[in-house]
Structures are given as C-alpha cells and as structure tokens.
C-alpha cells in the first residue's frame, strides 16, 4: 500500500517541472508530503525517491539535514514555535518557552498526549520587533505574554483556533 496518495503523486510532477533536475524538487516535495501527513515516514521517503528517480538515501540525506521534518510520528495538530534567539530572549522568550513546557508538560520537540500541540523552540523567527514571538503553524503572534499564551492554548485545546489564510 502506498503512503503517498494520488494527489500528492500528481503534485510531484508539477513541482518538478519548475526545476531542470528532479533532485531539486526534493525540498518542496518533502514540504508537500509533510503538509499532507504531518510527517515524512520512511515509507514516504522510499516512495518519493522512486518518483524522483533518486536513491532513498539521497532523499533521507537531505531530509535529515533540515530541522523542519519529523519522521517517527505525525506532529501535533498545532506546531507551536517559541523564539529563543537574542531579541526575543532579551524580552522574556526563554521564560515563555519554559512556561509552556510546564503548562503542556512536554519538552521542545515533543507532542502532547492528545496530539493537539507539538512544542518547538525556534532560532530567530524574524519577528524581533514583536518580541517575544511565537509561530503557531502558519500564524505569527507577537508581543506574547503568559496571559496571551494561556488564551492561545485554551483556543487550541478547544479546537477554536484557526490558522490565518491570508
């Protein structure tokens, strides 16, 4: 049985068409798979490699270099990145990350048992003017406080948090 569905497979050729080599499609294709499955399991790596005419080790080599992709199990419904780089750290980013660890009872890189939240530290989210900054999936939140984090997590747990679409 294939891990990659028909739509993802079709998408691969569209993506590969933007580049003169099929290998160049590896990163965008990994993103496409990750968007679909929430992670990139080894089986997907093998299937991708075949579709891109590469050895599985080639795809694995690239994948493992980048911090974004998970392989062992799907990330939580919401991936919460807390910036710990200097501008945010100078305005309480590290304390915020520690607070979230205690609140969610997980460490960075882990997912809550209900599968809702994966907590991550981030190196410079590039939102330094709004430090401390937190990225939740595709939505950036600036000037975060414990109160704002509490409200955010409440909405995430209640399933009433929605990603920005524009």
């Amino acid at each position: 049985m294939n891990v990659l569905d028909a739509e993802t497979r079709e998408n691969i050729d569209t993506i590969a068409g933007r580049y003169p080599t099929r290998r160049a499609a590896v990163l965008p294709v990994l993103h496409a798979v990750n968007d679909r499955l929430g992670y990139v399991p080894t089986e997907a790596v093998v299937e991708l490699a075949e579709l891109l005419e590469l050895a599985p080790a080639d795809v694995q080599d690239t994948l493992s270099f980048y911090g974004f992709f998970k392989q062992d199990k799907p990330q939580g419904e919401y991936r919460v990145w807390v910036c710990r780089s200097l501008s945010c750290a100078a305005r309480g980013g590290e304390e915020l990350l520690e607070y979230l660890c205690e609140k969610l009872k997980i460490r960075p890189g882990e997912t809550t048992p209900d599968g809702r939240v994966t907590l991550e530290f981030a190196e410079c989210l590039g939102a330094c003017e709004a430090a401390p900054a937190v990225l939740v999936n595709d939505t950036l939140y600036g000037n975060m406080t414990r109160e704002k984090i509490d409200e955010l997590i409440r909405r995430v747990r209640a399933g009433t948090h929605h990603d920005a679409t524009e």
Binding site: S85, L86, S87, E123, C124, G126, A127, C128, E129
Partner: peptide
C-alpha cells in the same frame, strides 16, 4: 532566507 538574529526587514 532572512535568518540572522535581529533581522526582519526583508519580512
């Protein structure tokens, strides 16, 4: 790929 800590103008 603006990633230098303290840098956000390209964003």
């Amino acid at each position: 790929d603006e990633s230098e800590p303290g840098t956000f103008v390209n964003r």
